[in-house]
């Protein structure tokens, strides 16, 4: 029996001209998580991994990382984000790994949407990013304004679309063939989330239709806006250049905490996954 069912060959990135090939070995994923409550009274972000410490299960079923940023008054936000994470984790256990994985991720998200809508009747909800690392490839599904980053060869890429009013205005302008964007004003309403878990009619979440092949050294970061709105991309890059995932979290935590005291700070959560041998 082949202990490395995902062995194979593929071109090394950046050297497409020569097309050398390398043997794929399964990755070891280095994982860390970071969470803080900010200046809030409650922690409304939730997260969770599946199979984080089990290499054997990772090779059979993959590694799942889920982040949810709850929204809604009182305990609604926490309930929504916890339910979202729990539903994704639970559903993932039932995935048919030989089936259509992007579709299964989307239906898990739709299920979470239904359940949270049932709990809060649309008065609360949660963002969602769920990443599945399976056979050295990345799958994801996302709704809302949380961030999914990929750091590769020293460059940081935002992978998911931001579902908010501002984004929608851009789309409208482009559809109108008006790319001057002159009349888009800087209003607070622009931040309003337009798709989320718990709206009861989630459709078309953002996702990869085909998975992204991962390379050794890639770092994937899922984070809530409490991280990404405080740390500009260049600071995130700096942190992600640290030698270990622990150090990355430590740096980001220190930088977020360094914000002037007294200033409002959101809950913040980050999940880091680095691909290594």
């Amino acid at each position: 029996m082949n202990p490395y069912p995902n062995s194979g060959t593929y071109p090394v990135p950046g050297e497409q001209d020569m097309m050398p090939t390398v043997e794929i070995r399964p990755f070891t994923y280095q994982i860390s998580n970071l969470q803080g409550i900010g200046t809030c009274e409650r922690q409304e972000d939730s997260f969770g991994f599946v199979n984080a410490l089990d290499d054997e299960k990772i090779s059979r079923r993959g590694l799942l990382a889920v982040l949810a940023d709850g929204m809604g008054g009182m305990s609604g936000g926490k309930l929504a984000s916890e339910t979202t994470v729990a539903t994704m984790r639970g559903d993932f256990e039932e995935f048919d790994m030989s089936g259509d994985i992007p579709r299964q991720l989307c239906s898990a998200a739709a299920k979470a949407d239904d359940i949270v809508f049932g709990q809060l009747a649309g008065k609360g909800g949660s963002t969602l990013i769920a990443c599945l690392f399976y056979r050295e490839k990345l799958y994801f599904v996302s709704a809302g304004d949380s961030f999914l980053y990929l750091m590769r060869n020293g460059s940081l890429y935002r992978i998911n679309a931001e579902h908010n009013v501002l984004h929608r205005k851009f789309e409208d302008r482009i559809a109108d063939k008006d790319i001057s964007l002159r009349s888009i004003t800087n209003e607070r309403e622009n931040r309003a989330v337009t798709r989320y878990i718990g709206c009861g009619k989630l459709r078309d979440p953002d996702r990869f239709v085909r998975p992204l092949p991962l390379y050794v050294g890639d770092i994937v970061m899922l984070c809530s806006d409490g991280v990404a709105n405080v740390l500009p991309p260049e600071r995130i890059v700096e942190a992600l250049e640290s030698p270990s995932v622990d150090e990355m979290c430590r740096m980001m935590n220190a930088e977020i905490s360094d914000n002037p005291t007294g200033q409002y700070r959101d809950n913040y959560t980050a999940l880091l996954i680095r691909c290594a041998y």
């Binding site: 998580n33 009274e41 922690q43 929204m71």
Partner: peptide
């Protein structure tokens, strides 16, 4: 590798409502 688990910042919340979407 491992984990970071700060939960430090004590309360004093100015605005706790996660105000959300549309």
């Amino acid at each position: 590798q491992g984990t970071v688990a700060p939960n430090g910042f004590g309360g004093g919340g100015v605005q706790n409502e996660k105000i959300m979407g549309t």
